[in-house]
Every structure is written in C-alpha cells, then in structure tokens.
C-alpha cells in the first residue's frame, strides 16, 4: 500500500507521540494540496472531480520522467528538484484545464450527475495513461534528497529533510493561495462566482474564464503535491491516484467542501488520524478510522468542520 506513513519511531512514549504527530502533519499537508483542488473546483462548479487524484498520479510520472532527463543532463539534484517543482504544476494545471474545456464545459448546464460520471470516466482514462506511462509495477522515484534527521539523535525525535521539504513548499503555497483568494481581483471573482454565478455574470465577470482559472490553480497544486510525494514517499504507481485522491476528497468533505481553509484543516485531521491510528491501533485499521471520524463528524456537522452552517437569506 502506498501510504504516507512508515518512519522509524523512538521508544519513549512522548517522543513516539510527537514523531507520530510530525508524520501526521506532513501527511496532512500533502493531502491538503490535493484536497484544495477538489474543494476549489467543487466550490465553483459543484463538480466532484473524481479525476483529480489521477491527475496527481500523472503529475508524479511527469515529474519522474522530467527528473530523470534533467538529472541525466545536469547531474545536479537541486536543479532537478527546482525544475520538477516548476514544470510539474504547469503540466498538471494545463491538463486539468484541458479536461474542463473538452469534457466538463459542455456539460455545464446538464444535470449534475452527467459531469460527475464523466469525471469518473476521465479518472479511468488518466489511470490507463499512467499504466501506459509507468507500467503496472510500482516504480522508484529517485531519492534526490538525502533522508536525514534534522534533530539531534539523542532527542529521539524525527524531523527529516523530506519533512522539511513538505513544510517549506506547502506552507508558502497555502498562505499564497489564501492571500490570492482573499485579496486579488481574480480571487474575489472566484469567490463571487462560487457564491452566485448568475450575479457574477451580471457584474461583468467572465464566468468561464474564472472556472478555467480554478482548474488551472487546482491542477497546479496537485502538480506540486506530485513532486513532493515522489521525493518523500519515493514509490509511485498508476493506482496511487485512487487512494490518495480518496483521502484528499475526504479531507475536503471533512473540512466543508468548497471551503479553502476547511480543506487544509480536514487534511491535517485526516493525516493525524491516519498516523495515530496506524501507530496506536493497527495500520490495517487506519483507513477505517479515517472514515469513522469522517462519518462521526458529518453526523454532527453535515456541512463539515468549516462549511457554511446556514443557507443565505433569500
């Protein structure tokens, strides 16, 4: 199973707990990048883009192929990582937008089930492209970053170079996204379109362009997640999109689908629950625990942790 956990833990109870939390947090940050793509697209076109996890998977293969070529040419891991981090989001962004333009756009006014089923179809197409691209066996991602504990050995704590990479890349991306959505003209137009597309049109907002921008941004975030995942987990395969996509989608629902901070919070909760359940219960029960938590929270808060509690006044 291509999970995100599996570090070696220290013996003492507290150290063990802290290490589990660090793992949970970095896992959560990674899921958050994918979850944001689900939640932003849902927020604006009310489509659960089931192909999103497989887009993330294709991003991993793109990064692998690109990384291999750049590494062979330059021999510099840093240059390779930098290029992967630049090109993979662009690849995923345009692929995501292309799918919107060719598949979902035509179904914009169709009943919601039509684009949903189409998204499942796109998911299978992507998975088969992945199969063709990478083969049916899991492939190793080059260990471009030396896995080294950054904390003193005698502390018993584990915070590795790849953990640092996850935080260093995802935190600024999420802060930047928040500022973008909150303050820029396009960001406000995205929120306006999500809240009332007809009114947005009447404001002179080109709704189709805003939707395209949303797919671009969601795709780019998945592309960033692809690179980080490859560098941290180091094993990729054509089926990885399904499971990771499902966790990320669950995170988006848990946080309140359509809500950007909610997706990040939901992802961190899921990363934590998964990590703690793996360590203290049984790794085989971890996935079940994630969904037990999801169901429990949705029973008490059907709109998710940060979802809008009430409908607007009419």
């Amino acid at each position: 199973m291509t999970g995100l956990t599996g570090l070696v833990f220290a013996s003492a109870d507290t150290q063990f707990f802290i290490n589990i939390c660090i793992t949970g947090l970095t896992t959560g940050f990674l899921y958050a990048l994918i979850a944001l793509g689900y939640t932003m697209v849902y927020g604006i076109v009310e489509l659960i883009n089931f192909a999103h996890g497989d887009l993330f998977m294709l991003g991993c293969f793109f990064a692998l192929t690109l990384g291999g070529a750049v590494m062979a040419l330059t021999g510099s891991p840093m240059a390779t990582i930098a290029l992967m981090l630049l090109a993979t989001p662009v690849f995923c962004a345009f692929l995501n937008m292309l799918v919107d333009l060719t598949v979902y756009k035509a179904l914009r006014t169709a009943p919601k089930l039509a684009p949903l089923v189409s998204a499942i179809g796109v998911s299978f197409v992507f998975m088969n492209i992945g199969l063709f691209w990478g083969g049916s066996q899991d492939v190793n991602f080059p260990g471009l970053i030396e896995e080294r504990n950054l904390l003193a050995e005698d502390s018993g704590l584990q915070f590795t170079t790849t953990d640092l990479l996850v935080i260093l890349v995802t935190a600024p991306v999420m802060i930047g996204l928040t500022i973008f959505v909150k303050s820029t003209s396009l960001g406000k137009a995205m929120r306006a379109t999500a809240q009332n597309p007809v009114a947005a049109q009447l404001m002179g907002i080109n709704v189709n362009r805003v939707i395209a921008a949303t797919f671009l941004i969601g795709g780019a975030l998945a592309g960033i997640a692809s690179v980080i995942y490859g560098l941290k987990i180091k094993t990729i395969g054509y089926q990885m999109g399904f499971q990771n996509g499902l966790y990320a989608f669950t995170a988006a629902v848990l946080g309140g689908i359509g809500n950007i901070p909610g997706a990040v919070l939901g992802a961190i909760v899921i990363g934590m629950v998964y990590s703690l359940a793996s360590a203290y219960i049984d790794a085989r029960w971890a996935t079940a625990m994630v969904f037990v938590i999801l169901i429990t929270i949705l029973v008490f808060r059907p709109t998710g942790l940060l979802g809008a509690r009430t409908r607007e006044k009419v």
């Binding site: 406000k188 137009a189 009114a199 947005a200 404001m203 907002i205």
Partner: peptide
C-alpha cells in the same frame, strides 16, 4: 436582479467592489 442575488459570504464592501469588477 430578482431576489437581489448579493454575494452572501462577501462583505458589503467586497460586494460593491465586485460591482466595479
């Protein structure tokens, strides 16, 4: 428009800014 269709989760000021998009 009919039913006002203001943006419920934008502030009043942001609603006006949207009008000037």
């Amino acid at each position: 428009p009919e039913g006002r269709k203001i943006f419920p989760r934008l502030t009043v000021l942001e609603n006006l800014q949207m009008g000037a998009f």
